[in-house]
Design a protein around this nucleic acid. Sequence first.
RNA 1: GCGGGCGUGAUGGAAUUGGUAGACAUACCGGACUUAAAAUCCGGAGGCCCAUAGGGCCAUGCGGGUUCGAGUCCCGCCGCCCGCACCA
Length: 855
Amino acid sequence: MSTLERYNAPATEAKWRAAWDEADLYAVADDDPRPKYYVLEMFPYPSGRIHIGHTRNYTMGDVVARYRRAKGFNVLHPMGWDAFGMPAENAAMDRNVHPADWTYDNIDVMRGQLKSMGLSLDWSREFATCDVDYYAQQQRLFLDFREHGLVDRQLAKVNWDPVDQTVLANEQVIDGRGWRSGAPVEQREMEQWFFKITDYAQDLLEAIDTLDRWPDKVRLMQRNWIGRSDGMAFDVRLTGAPDGFETLSIFTTRHDTMMGATFAAVAADHPLAKALAEKSPEVAAFCEECARLGTSQEAIDKAEKLGFDTAIKVIHPTNPNWTVPLYIANFVLMTYGSGAVMGVPAHDQRDLDFARKYGLDVIDTFVPLDTEERVADVAFVPPKTSKVKYVCWAGEPGTVTTCQKAMDWSLKRFTEDGWGKAKTQYRLRDWGISRQRYWGCPIPMVYCDACGLVPVPVEDLPVELPRDIDFSAPGNPLDRHPTWKHTTCPKCSAPARRETDTMDTFVDSSWYFARFTAPKADVPVHRQVMEDWLPVDQYIGGVEHAILHLLYSRFFMRAMEKSGYGSAPEPFKGLFTQGMVTHETYADPSGEWLFPEDVVWREGNPFHAKTGEPITVAPPEKMSKSKRNVVDPEAILSGYGADTARWFMLSDTPPERDIEWTDAGVDGAHRFVQRLWRLVHDAVGRGDSAGSGDGLALRKATHAMIRDVSADIEGLHFNRAVARVYEMANTLQKSLGAGDAPGAAYREAVDAMVRCFAPMMPHLAEECWALLGNEGFVSAADWPTYDPALLIENELTLPVQINGKKRAEVTVAKDAANDDIERAVLALDEVKRHLDGSPPKKVIIVPKRIVNVVA
RNA sequence: GCGGGCGUGAUGGAAUUGGUAGACAUACCGGACUUAAAAUCCGGAGGCCCAUAGGGCCAUGCGGGUUCGAGUCCCGCCGCCCGCACCA
């Protein structure tokens, strides 16, 4: 043993990766007869290098892929690159490199890094979304969607940077200013392309119920995002309004409070408000003020309710002689409902604040059952299921009923009266996909003065991005390009202009999982092949994509089905959202953030490695460049090896929670790599003949491990699977130390253990597998099976409680009768002592679990 | 504000339908090996109290409740985290 060299992880790992490549072990065929399993991790953005979060995400996916492969599935486990996006353009501006070169160089680096993790990926299916072959097919999908009525043009507000002359994404607006120019951002309305995701609002909502292998949290977030509310729509007549505005559309979900409406209000960007603003500078000024306040999130928090009395009167729908004033109000949203509301101060806090400020009436329509007190400063907004007493409504005053019943009744009544009608409203809005930038998929449309908007014919695809591009001036470089946008109309051949907007990069990631099923096809997907592979059985990624990416992908599958691409309504059958990787933060006395490698520890206290100053340590948080609490996985991979990094990522912390990266944890993982190596060496040294006895205890432990590790991996409880392997190693080592380990049982145990940790540490497993003299790759070996007969105990040791406290144990035959157990328990010294001579009040025996004696 | 989640040793965390709380790991302490250290191996360990073996009490954020039995279920607090946020 003393001569055994340490396991050289980096060298050994490289050897096995080369061997896997040589054997083309992870390539997958579409026509394989075994049952399919599609495991996918969210593909990375090629930012430059892999970060620690990637290693966690891809390790988890790889464990699942390797486990399923061993269980006899035909496993699709592909990798690609979410390669379009702003950082490439920023690099182009900052460093004068071409976005394509920057992106593809990054991909080369990151591909090498991912390969060094030993992931069992089918690299032959790799693609990047910026590959012309990919975005050409995406353009085709766009045209098909349009053909099927799923694309339209709508006016939409954008963040406009007046200095850079460009549209900004929300995350580029910091405190209301452009991130580059620092100029105050303006809201502009522009015509943009939209995917009509709202056509599927109800379907997307209902189908969430079928996603039973998604986290409840994500399902709830999607439900809230779609935001269905059932209410009533109606038109009210106006007096004193400009021509063309004789009526106003209103939406409400509380029609039971209609008789408490004391004012009406429209949004500042409502068409009526705009019409008034044209005639009145005062109105225009008010609306502008509202628009300014609107943008930043903080402002909304503090925003005071502001209103402008238009002097227009709204005729209450229930009574032609009853009018209420119409305001323009800053808290009414144009983007929800009809952009106009009836204000019911008694039962809505916003309306109440507004009413108090502008001296409007407050009419209680119902009161609590236990008090006659009327609304003062706090609106009375009971849950719809609460019973209240109605005092002023469309029904009999004094009625006691639930709000929901009153609403149902009111809706029926108002519908019969001929002015109200039931309406379902969604919070979800159509998906604006236009982006005014270069590094994205061009939208294949042409503007012709004679023919209007004309789609690029499919045979003319792809509309390829020009290579020569200039980032030295602000604005969209495609729009500025000297020749690119000039073309001829596909219909009339007259000179025409190309659409210079490109697609939101979320479009790229909305169907890549489908493209992996036929990555080289000259159509977006092959119908049959896609239907065979989809849905993805297990999708793994960050919770930050819980709404947009996952919802857009669900929409895409429906849109593709409608466009004739085959049926796979739900793209991801199983979803798992893993936690982040965190690290302590370090700051020097001046408050500067320090990298972990700049910190040295002396006697448990941290000091600056160079200056020797004491350092303050703050609790772990998400790794970020700004706080410098980052660890580069490259150093771990090349120093300790991939298996150590993988094992660490899977250990201790449940995968859905945040994991704290610590050097001690990594060292511990590496120590275990070395320890397993020694254990296996020892097994080989013993051969098959040494030892005595049948090793039953060891065999039981082995088979229990197989059962438990299998269940833990299947349930994605990787931390528990890791603990089971540790337990097995401890058991092996103990039986070894006791000198009673029979060779065959020991050999069986080691063999099973190697196969069980192979999905987690594939290189080490491969080396151990070879050392044990097995043929072929453990990566291609079957998953071990366990013998249930070995797990049945003939005798059971039951805990014995007295009055609910554990006092003793009793060992009985596994099928012992309750009478026998009771007799054995009452004979125990410990039990006698506590009973002190008197008979027990009761003895509760839970079969195979526990005995409780009630004294 | 609305919605959701989580509170267990020094630390990360285990714990079937309510049934032996603290598996496994990290850090720590002791021993062996070593000139020494590292590495390795063996062992210890929730807290408090009495103690010779051993025994007792208290312990899963806090306070109640249901139960033979509660980390787990119910009610009320406290704290932290996440999502949405003027959605009519």
